[in-house]
Every structure is written in C-alpha cells, then in structure tokens.
C-alpha cells in the first residue's frame, strides 16, 4: 500500500519548557488505512520522541486515546485519517487541564465517577453459594445501555456546562449512578441522591445533548441525566420513594 503524506497540527505543551500550549506541525507519511492514533505513534517513533499521548487497546474500548480532532472529541483509534481533508488538528480534550501535550489531568474525572457510588448497595448481601440474583432480560435492558460507558471522558470535553461550571458532576458519572439506580439488584438509590441530585448534580445540566452526540459507545448520557432529573424531582416531592426497590 502506498503512503500519503499528511499534515498534522498538534497542540504541544511541555511545562518545563513552555509557558503556554502552542501548535506544532508535522508531515507524516500515512498508510491509507491509518487512524489518527497511528499517525501520532509514527510521530513518536520516527519524528519526534518527545510527543506524549495516552493509548492502549487500539480497538475503542479502553478509553485512553480521546482527543479533539479538528475540534471534535473522538477516540483517535477510531478516527480514520482518510476521513479528514487537509490539515488535521489534534488537541487534548477540552474542559480538562493539560498535563503535557495531549495528556490531560483526569483525577477530577475519576473522583466524580467515584462520587456517585457506582457499586451495588444492598442491605443484605446474598451468599455466593445461593447463586445469582434473578434478573429478567427486560430488567437488564433497562440499565444495560448506561453500563456501556468506557470512561473515555469525551462527553466531559463536549459539555458546554462543564466549561462554565467545572464542579458539575458531569454526564458519565451521572449516567453511571443512574445505571446502578436502575439495576434491579441495587438498593443504593438514597445513598446516591446527594451526589446526583445535590448542588453539582443533574440540575446543572441544560440538556445541550452534546455528550450523547460525541459518545463513541452510544451510551446517551443526556438521556441518563435527564431521566435522573425526573426521578430526582419525583423523589424530592415524595411521589417516588428515595429507596425504590423491586
């Protein structure tokens, strides 16, 4: 296969040498079936070893390689070079502080994920010897979609609310909390209420729907957040009990 040389503009930031991020251009010979991540690796291997970026599985499931390509948050392992015209501009995810080059600071994101208590909460745990909990395919279907989140944080980069309210818990975390609330095995609804429906919870969302537009796994976080608003509001009024349990 023949290579074609493509121009990449990559936002570089090396805090030990630069006070501010700036773009640097690279000419990269690309194979026709390359994704943007392949080009970044080619730069790292053969052109400029100082370029730093995260990646791992290269099959769209580990969630490491999210970046902005031509302004849109994407997984670079699933963004084909051939689908872009002209110069390709690669930047770190927006709404996150930049540690270096294309690497952003994710600690805050992970704290937010943790804040919604994304685990099964039960008053009485069943013993393993007693076998599994019964869960019908319909009950599974109810939360399945929201369990598909790979924590790639693209939705955080796309969310206009997070740009103005950095403390907003955010789409992925709320979708995850909602996923456990919808799980027929869970009884932790009340324990998640404060994180999901408190000061920085669902109410900050103004339903831009951007999270769902960029989600590479079709999780539809906007749906989760806004369904959670309805449940939260009904719980607030007392129409729905906070400890809803099957």
């Amino acid at each position: 296969m023949e290579t074609q040389t493509r121009k990449f503009e990559i936002l570089r930031y090396r805090p030990e040498e630069q006070s501010e991020p700036e773009f640097r251009s690279y000419e990269v010979p690309c194979m026709p079936d390359w994704v943007v991540l392949d080009a970044l690796n080619a730069i790292k291997d053969d052109i400029d070893p100082t370029l730093s970026h995260r990646w791992s599985c290269r099959m769209g499931v580990c969630g490491s390689c999210g970046m902005l390509v031509n302004g849109r948050p994407v997984l670079t392992c699933a963004a084909f070079v051939r689908d872009y015209e002209g110069t390709i501009r690669v930047e770190p995810l927006s709404n996150f502080p930049i540690v270096r080059d294309l690497v952003v600071e994710l600690d805050d994101f992970v704290h937010k994920i943790q804040s919604v208590k994304p685990w099964i909460v039960r008053k009485l745990e069943k013993d393993v010897e007693q076998g599994e909990y019964r869960q019908s395919p319909a009950q599974l279907e109810e939360f399945k979609q929201f369990s598909m989140c790979i924590n790639c944080a693209l939705c955080y980069a796309a969310c206009p609310v997070l740009a103005s309210e950095p403390d907003f818990v955010g789409p992925a975390a709320i979708a995850l909390g909602h996923r456990y609330n919808l799980d027929s095995r869970d009884e932790g609804n009340a324990e998640r209420y404060d994180a999901m429906h408190g000061h920085n919870g669902v109410w900050s969302c103004s339903y831009a729907n951007e999270c769902s537009q960029v989600c590479p796994k079709h999780v539809d976080p906007a749906m989760a957040v806004n369904q959670a608003k309805l449940t939260g509001a009904l719980q607030w009024t007392g129409i729905l009990p906070k400890k809803s349990m099957t």
Partner: peptide, 8 residues
Amino acid sequence: HRLEPLLW
C-alpha cells in the same frame, strides 16, 4: 439550590 427540583 434547595429548590432546584421544583424549579426544574
């Protein structure tokens, strides 16, 4: 903030 659910 306390009234957010109502406002929504």
